[in-house]
Simulated assay, not measured.
Amino acid sequence: MPSRTKTLHFLSSALVTCISVGILGFAMSTAWATKSMKCARDGSGFFNGSAAVTLGLFDGRLEQELCPLFGPPVDFEVFPKLTETKGVPLVLHAVTLCLLALCLLCSAVSILISLYNSVSNPYETYMGPIGIYASSAISACLSVLALVVFVVNFSVTTVAEDLVRTFSENVPVDLKIVSYKMLLGYYLLIPYAALSLLAIGLIYMYDHAAYTQRREQQRPTEDAPKEIMMY
């Protein structure tokens, strides 16, 4: 059976990773960004309409006024609408989702390894601290990469403008970006990455202490009197 210290550290790591998974799950279910635009009929030059697109990973919301017509807010599923537009925005959005799915998978692996180590004493293989270092580090790196891919997709490409045009009822419109901002779902990836690194830190603290103790046990004669060492 593992020592109480080892059990405490590995259970703490599993708990921290579980919290990070809960944060990521909530982040994936809420809105990530919103973009406001001025709208005009194609070629008119009069930007007297407006539209706002709020985008999550799976669901979105469009609010429009004279763009090109009045209408109530419309909720839509992101992937079917992006499939209509095709191109780079669809690919980048799919990449973001794949990265987050891999984050969840790596976090699940980290939890399982932590729980396994809390009740047993495996060898120093991928089922020990090394496995937690690798899986948690990959989770943190992929979450940061997902942040970058999503913000590039939303701010650089025309994903929001393309979505507005799919609702314009075949009336060509000109769109001018007014502002955009990232929302709660996007920023929740930051604490997710931080907690993944914290899980690594908890295991490193135990691993370093255990390594130091092993080194001390392997040098029993260094502090012995010289007379004893001569015999």
Results as ranks from 00 to 15, higher is better:
V16N: 05
S12M: 08
W32G: 11
I19A: 15
V91T: 14
E65R: 00
V119T: 14
R4N: 13
T54F: 00
L57P: 04
G43P: 01
A27M: 04
Q64D: 03
L104H: 09
P73M: 13
S20Y: 02
R4P: 08
R4D: 11
L112R: 11
G60D: 04
G87E: 08
T7L: 03
I23R: 05
V74N: 01
F26S: 11
P2F: 03
D75P: 02
L90R: 12
K35R: 13
T85N: 07
S12T: 10
A101D: 00
T30C: 14
T96M: 10
M37N: 01
D75H: 12
R4E: 13
G60N: 07
E65F: 00
Q64E: 08
V74Y: 00
F10V: 07
H93V: 07
S13A: 15
E77M: 10
S50Q: 08
M28F: 02
A40V: 08
S20D: 09
Q64L: 05
H9P: 10
R4F: 06
L99E: 01
M28C: 15
G71F: 01
K86F: 02
F10L: 11
L90Y: 02
E77W: 00
E77T: 11
I19K: 04
S118D: 03
I111Q: 05
H93W: 05
P80H: 02
V109A: 15
T83C: 09
A40Q: 06
M37L: 12
I113K: 06
V74L: 05
S36F: 06
L8G: 11
T54S: 13
A51P: 01
V78G: 12
N117H: 09
H9L: 07
F76D: 12
S12K: 06
L55Y: 03
L97A: 13
P80A: 02
C18H: 04
L97C: 13
P89S: 07
L62P: 04
T83N: 14
P73N: 10
E77I: 03
M28G: 12
F58G: 15
L24Q: 09
L55C: 07
S118K: 08
H9A: 15
A31T: 15
E84T: 12
G49F: 01
I111A: 10
A14R: 06
L105E: 00
A31N: 15
E65G: 00
T5F: 08
C98E: 03
G87S: 11
S44Y: 01
P72M: 12
M28H: 05
F58C: 08
S44W: 03
L11I: 14
V21I: 14
S110K: 01
F70W: 01
A52Q: 13
C98Q: 07
V91M: 12
G45A: 08
M37V: 10
V95A: 15
A14S: 15
L15N: 07
S110R: 03
T83H: 12
M37I: 01
S29C: 14
C98N: 05
A52D: 07
C103M: 08
F10A: 13
D75Y: 05
S107D: 15
P89T: 03
K35M: 05
E65H: 02
L69N: 02
F26D: 05
C103G: 13
